[in-house]
Each structure stands twice: as structure tokens, then as C-alpha cells.
Design a protein around this nucleic acid. Structure first.
Lengths: 222, 222, 222, 222
DNA sequence: AATGAATGAGCCTTCATTCAT
DNA sequence: AATGAATGAAGGCTCATTCAT
């Protein structure tokens, strides 16, 4: 479960894995466009020819980073969603895992949300579709809880998920490993904020502004 | 209050404003590095020479976008924070405004969170400092509510603010003007989720995971 | 006799003089091409418009530097050549003056020998012609001495002059005001070496290699 | 011994050599700054990319020209200085070689003395240091002769060497291959003037102006 | 499987000069 | 006499990619 997405950059890893590992780090540090192929191959200790033997183009590296990250996220989410326990327990476990994955793959997430626009249109569409499916599977848990009455239904589930994911995906913006709170603590607070926001209240509060019960299936894009 | 940050790109605006307007749009669409100076000046209907007469370098455009956006945010926040009403009313008004500003300046925010890394170190530091001050002023409202007992104190205020801002700043990632919910509705739901998450509960629930009452002054960076 | 070629750059000098003074300094420091018009006008405390009011183009500044320097040299040489005294006395005085002028106008000479190639062809020709005349007038003194028998005639006069001028014009290459010898001392040694080389010897030395008595009028260019 | 410094520009030479050969010619003709990289690669029959494959920057070409010339000069000087014969014979041979090298590499010398200022500071310092060492090795010959009493000691050796080198290095300023005197003749006259200036005189003449016997080790820079 | 020389298009920037005021 | 905004051409350099080996 702690497998590195692209192995590590050590001399023992395969060439493609080494390339992906250093590319992820460099893209996160300096941005995709400001990182030259030359820098990547130098950092990976291979030559340009070797890289082009494994990857058809520079943006194939980027796509592969996206692809592996999405695959990992999806696999893990399914594990938790399909696991045992009440819906709240399963959602909590999934949310905790989303956060710990985010902290573990900070660089990958940084690249993900910063460099989407450089993917060729076709691949951007593919990534967005895969991402949307992921979003929908997570949202299904929330909706399950809403149907069971343990989560409030007066806020559209997709908005709650966007809200949570948004918060999570921005952590790479401000989180510093040497900060006051460690990743574990932040995760717990975040999950608490998320679930607390979802939980049905004893008394009816100000509720959502006037449009309860509307169909809340994702007309927004992922 | 609805003034465009860089005027509009029409022939009536000043050259620098026109340049900033089209640069913002292009940077948001294709990314900073993938947008050439040539494209910018062509879209603004001026020559390269004219651009370099007003901006010393391409990244001066970027910096100016950041600078204006931060200035606008700070000005507006102070208006609401210093306004009349209970702390909850003031925080709600500020939060609503953060959201409506985000929707109004979607391009600016997109650029903001995607292109930070291309600013020269010095300016990046300046932007981060100004951003941190903004974050602190917003957080001060939350802390005021915690002291008054209207907001729960068992989640560090800076984390709550990071959580909210994270969610807000990611809207440009998924929001589409032609989606099911309009900006106004999304804003109301988001503010509801935020305030609901903050509100003190009648009975003490599972609270924050084991570490209540810790000093919660921001050791995390903005 | 100590008039500055282009006045000084103080606020009291006329604008053209100030421009020439700073241009000379900057051209000597960084080279003609690496000095921008903007730098010149900034250093002179005027605007571009003002400069183009007085000088039609950047290379007019350069030409004026050449022109003034050549005029100064020619004027001074004539003074010494037409003065009283034996031919040796007059040549010595002229040679000393050549050296002291070189030290006084180090920047001008640096520019002179480094930037000739940027003058438009026509002006380059004009400068070369003026320079050749100067060379010829100096050479005439040597030839006068040769005819009188006080200078050896077995080395063509124009070569001796080239030799001396060459040595003199390179001083800006190695001379440092804080060096062991001051300008005055170097001048005296140089003139001594020059005149000693010219002086007819009691016994016939190895003489020039086999071609005495040939016509030695300048088929070489100045 | 007659190897071209950068091979020739023919199609048979290596690309770097061809680039250096044409760069030398163009820099000598039009100056470093007035020669564009485009012109160089066009004249060498290669593409810009090829040039930047071998030379990191335009001024690397310049530095390489300096470097090769200095290497050549130093190697040759050592050959002559360490050869057989009296000190006067060795100095004469070295001086003749300096001149013939100057004539053979007129373009290189033209560039050398005209474009020093465009080298980055660090490299300028390196070139100056190497140049100074060369100057010192040549001067050592003069000093050896002074100690033996065959050369006059009342003119500092470094000044005499500056004087000679100055004269020599200016030949590219006025020498034309189609002039009245050919390179060989000019060389012999120049060496004659140099050695004649150095030679101790039977009777003590006016000597150097008043400061005989001073320490004459080079406090001036090369 | 891998090399690395070579390409060629494009990028950001500089700058002498002009011109309406 | 003097301004300074604006031009437009060119300049040095980078870089993803190709291809013969």
C-alpha cells in the first residue's frame, strides 16, 4: 500500500520508473514547461535517447503521472467503499485515505492541479473523465448516507464532495512538513470538518438556501 | 465594486490595462509558459515594443495580476471585517464576498494558484507574505467567534480557514458557468458548509480527534 | 592646453558636451555596441529626444569623438613641429606630447582603436585619411632628421613611426594609474626608446636587413 | 607549425573548427557585436542548433579564439626561449616569431585587442593572467640579457617589452598585404628596432631620464 | 536498447529611431 | 528645444524531437 508511484529514483529502479520519479519531482518544483527534457534525463542518469525509447514525448511523462495517480486513487477508494462497516465508517475511512494519499504524493498532486492544461486535448478529456468517475464513486458514499438519513440532504452531495476535495487538494499549497501540525493531525481535523458538515442535525438549522430536495446529480463537471 | 481588475480589453482601455486583461485570459486558458508574448500583444492589438515600454518583462504581467488581485481581496475583506453586525454576520458577509470575488475573477484565481512558481523568488515571497496577511485577517474573525463561544474552538482556526479557502480556490477547477447550479447558489451552499462546520454544537460531539484546546495560532504557512 | 575634449559631464557643460563626455567614458568601459543610447542619456541627465536633437544618430557621437581627438592631435603636432629648435628637439617635444595626450585621453584612444569598424564606410575613410595626414606630418620630422644625418636612414621612416605609434597606442591596454611607474615616467622611457632607436650610430651596426636606401615613403596605409 | 588555429573553414574541417574559423574572420571584419550568430552559422554552413551544441554561447567562440591564440603563443615562445644560442640569439628568434605569428594570425590579433571587453569578467581575468605570464616569460629573456650586460639596464625590461609588444600588436591596424613592404621585411625592421633599442651602448648616452638602476620588476600589469 | 549530434521553430528581450506634442 | 510613447527589426538562445549508428 505504500508502493511509490514511480518507484524511487535510485539506480535500482527501472529506467521508466526513474524517469517518472524525477520528472514528478522536477515538475512539482519548477513546473512542467520550465523543466527541460535534458534536466530530467540528467537527473535520472540516463540519456535523451533512452527516454525517447520509453516515452514518445515529454507529455507522455506527464500523462503517465496522471494515469498512475488516478489509478492508485481509484483502487484505494474502491477498497474502502466496498469494505465493511456503516456508511459513515466507510466514508470516514475513505476520506482519511484521500488525505493521507494527498500528503504522501504531494508532488504528484501539485503537478496534477497545475499542469492539466498542457496535456493534449484528448488526454485531458480522458483524465477528466477518469477523475469524474472517481468523484462519482466518492459521492455515492455520501448519497448513500443521505438516503439512510445519517447525512443531511439539504446540501447537494456533489457540492459537499467538491468542497472536501477542494480543501484537500489545496493542502500542497500551504502545508509544510515542519509546520506546527503534522499530516496525521491535519487529516483528522479535515475529516472531522467534512463529516461534521455532512452530519444531519437534531434541529433543522438555516438549511441550504431554499432549494431542498432538488436533483443533485452532478451537472457540474468533475 | 464590480470594476474589472484590468479594465477590459476593448480599444478604449489603456494599453497596460488591455495587456493585463488579455494576459489574464490567456494565462488562464493555456498557462503562463505556453502563452507567448507575441500572442499577448497580438490579442491586445499592440506591438511588442509597446508592451516592453510598460512592463519590463513577461513576468511583470504576472506579478501585476497577483498584485491587483491581492489588493482587491484585502480591501474587500477589510470592509466586511470592519463592518457592523455580530461576528457571525460579518464572517458570513466576508465569506460570501470571497466566493463571489472568486467567481467574478475565475481567470485571475486560476492563474494565481497555477503559476506562483514562475515568479522570481523575491516576488514569490512578497506575494506569499501578502497572501498570509490576508489569511490572518480572515482567521481573526474566526478566532473572535471562538472567543465569544459562537464557533467551536476544538478545531484550530487556521485549519478551518485553510479548509474553506482551499475549497473556494478550487472552484475554478470544476465550475462551469453553464452548470446546473449558478455561482450564487454554490456560494450559499459553500458558506453554509463553512459556517455549519464552525458552529458550536449544543451537545459535545466526537469533537476534534483528541487534541482540544491546543494553541491554534498559525504555525502553518499561508 | 588641458581643455577636455568634450568638456566634462557636469551640469554646467552644454548638453552635447555632456553627451560626448559620458559617451566616451561608457564606450571605453563597455564598448560602443554594448552601450545603449538609453544609458548614455541617463548618465548625461537628459532625454533621448534631447540627444537626437543634437546628434542625428548614435554613431554621430562616435564620429565626433574621433573628429575632436584627431583635431586636437593635429593641432598639437603642428605646434611642436613648427616650433623652434633642432629637429631632434622638435621631434622629442612632439613625441612627449603624443604620449601625454595619450595618457590624458586614455578613454578616447581606447574607443578610437576599438570601434573604428562601426563607423559607416564613408566616415571610416575620412577618419583614416585624417589619421594618415597626422602620421605623415609626424614622419616628416623623422625624415628631416634622416636627411640631416642625425637619424639613421636604414630603417624606413614610416616603419619607425608605426613602431612608435603602435607602442604608444597600446598603453591603454596595460597602463594602470596605480602602477609602479606614473604616466610621466613611462613617457620619458618611451621617448628615450624611440629616439635611441632612431639615432644614427657611430659604427655601422647590423643595419636593416639588406635593403638600405629604398624609397621609404608610405605605401603602407595609416 | 603552420597549422591553422581553427583549421580552415572548408567542408572537411570539423564543425567547431569551421565555426571558429569563420567567427574569427567575421569578428575581425565587422566586430564581435556586429556579427550575428546567424551570420556565423550561415558562413560556416551549419545551423544555429549545431553551433549551440558545441558552444554554449556566442562568447564561448570568442573565448576559444583567445584561448587557442594564447596557447599557441606560449608554446612557441617556450620553444625559442629554451632553445640553444646566446641570449641575444634566442631573444631575436622569439621576437621574429612573435612578428611572424602576428602576421599569420592577423585576424586573431585584431579580435584579441578589440574585443577583450565583451568577455565575461571571469574569463577576462583568466585571459589577462595567461597573457601576463606570456609577457613575463618574454621579459625574462630581456632581463637575462641585462644581467649579462648585453642589453642596457637603464630602461625597465617590462617597459621595453610593452613597447615592443605594443608596436607589434598594432600592425594589424595599418598593415595591408598589398603594401610596399611584405610581412617578412617589416618583421626584420621591427626586430632590428627592438634589439637596437635594447643593446647596450659603448659609451653611456643620455640614458634613461634620471632614474637609472631602479628596481624594474613589472609592477605594471600585462 | 541506447547514443548524441543535429535540427528548426520559436521564445523573450533589446534597442536605435521616429513622431506627435 | 525637448519629451517619451511607440515602433519594428533583429538578436541570442532554448528545446523537444529526430535519426543514423
Amino acid at each position: 500500500m505504500a508502493q511509490r508511484l514511480a518507484g524511487n529514483a535510485s539506480a535500482y529502479a527501472s529506467i521508466p520508473d526513474r524517469l517518472l520519479a524525477v520528472a514528478t519531482r522536477l515538475f512539482a518544483e519548477k513546473g512542467y514547461e520550465s523543466t527541460s527534457v535534458q534536466e530530467i534525463v540528467a537527473a535520472a542518469g540516463v540519456t535523451k535517447g533512452a527516454m525517447y525509447h520509453y516515452f514518445g514525448a515529454k507529455d507522455d511523462l506527464l500523462y503517465e503521472i496522471y494515469h498512475r495517480l488516478l489509478g492508485l486513487q481509484t483502487r484505494r477508494l474502491r477498497e474502502f467503499a466496498g469494505g465493511p462497516g456503516t456508511v459513515e465508517e466507510r466514508l470516514r475511512a475513505a476520506a482519511v485515505d484521500v488525505l493521507s494519499t494527498s500528503f504522501q504524493y504531494l508532488d504528484e498532486f501539485t503537478v496534477f492541479f497545475r499542469s492539466m492544461h498542457v496535456l493534449p486535448k484528448e488526454r485531458r478529456r480522458a483524465v477528466r473523465a477518469e477523475r469524474r468517475r472517481y468523484h462519482e464513486e466518492f459521492r455515492a458514499l455520501v448519497e448513500e448516507g443521505q438516503r439512510e438519513g445519517v447525512f443531511r440532504a439539504d446540501v447537494p452531495a456533489d457540492l459537499s464532495v467538491h468542497y472536501f476535495f477542494g480543501a484537500v487538494h489545496q493542502v500542497s499549497t500551504w502545508y509544510r512538513p515542519d509546520g506546527r501540525l503534522d499530516a496525521q493531525e491535519i487529516s483528522e481535523y479535515y475529516v472531522e470538518l467534512f463529516l461534521n458538515g455532512l452530519r444531519a442535525r437534531p434541529e433543522a438549522p438555516a438549511a441550504a438556501p431554499g432549494r431542498p430536495g432538488r436533483d443533485d446529480r452532478g451537472a457540474t463537471s468533475a
